[in-house]
Amino acid sequence: MPLLDVRDLSVVFKRKGTAPFTAVDNVSFAVEPGQTVGLVGESGSGKSVTSLAVMGLLPKRGAHVTGSVNFDGTELLSLSMKELRNRRGRDLGMVFQDPMSSLNPVITVGRQISEVLQRHRGQDRKEADAGAVAMLDQVGIPDPARRVGEYPHQLSGGMRQRALIAIALACRPRLLIADEPTTALDVTIQAQILKLLADLVRGTETAMIMITHDLGVVAGLCDEVNVMYGGKIVERAERHRLFAEPRHPYTHGLLRSIPRLDAPRGEKLVPIKGSVVDNIPWEGGCAFAPRCPNALQRCRQVMPELEPEDARHLRCHNPVQPAAVAEGRAER
């Protein structure tokens, strides 16, 4: 049985005076204990909103969430606010994108960790403070005994992200959601943070959902990858399979738009034309069709379903053929 089972999750933002906006559209995926699952997509593909919906962190007013989020037998969407708060921080931890703005500027880093331990572990202040030092040490912050007393502005960007990870992992949650944890960091620091996350969850039962627009992050970390477009999952496959043989034209395009060191000199990158359309018209066709090189007449008339095919799930009427993938590689 999966640890987290998301079924038909939809999030519609409704504001007075504007048309309702579907950010997440019938998304289903599952995460096994110890597994790392990637949610990949461009800005606006609904990946972050999906994670916020799982955590129950979307604003109560304006965001309309339907479907099912089953965590170890408990339906999270029907929990009361109080019950949900008992789980957040204890069973579910979350690391956010911008470590500067995600830490409280007027409270010491140590206090921001110890307050979680006090809340969920019932520890007194002294135990929790000691726990905070241990957590900082574990996420690789040097001289943790001194750093606990410091404020976020006194730490570097990488250290702040480590502190956020320490907060999320303080109570050993069974599910960790990392929402673009490296986007705001320098490239060298990015690699360190990804390695840290991988080291922390490897060999434990902690499952992880990695949300990113960066396929490099996915390649190094995830067991299974969900590619999202316009609020829907368009392709799901095991990591190696997805990279070796992307079938959805969108996934294919994403991979072709990444520069590669082993590519011949002078080879041009192939960008995906256009950008994500604002309100995605999945009704009456495929949302990617306007940008898709493979689009058929049918793609503009009938919405494709996510269907199992060849050890993966695919939402496409005219997928890239394995031969074409190989050909594309041969051209390189």
């Binding site: 921080g89 979350m94 995600s102 969920h120």
Partner: peptide, 21 residues
């Protein structure tokens, strides 16, 4: 602010979030 969302994600109780954060 983002840090209030972080506080929410820790499962802190409402009075703590309001007072401290």
């Amino acid at each position: 602010e983002d840090f209030v969302r972080t506080a929410e994600s820790k499962g802190l109780t409402t009075p703590v979030i309001r007072r401290r954060h």
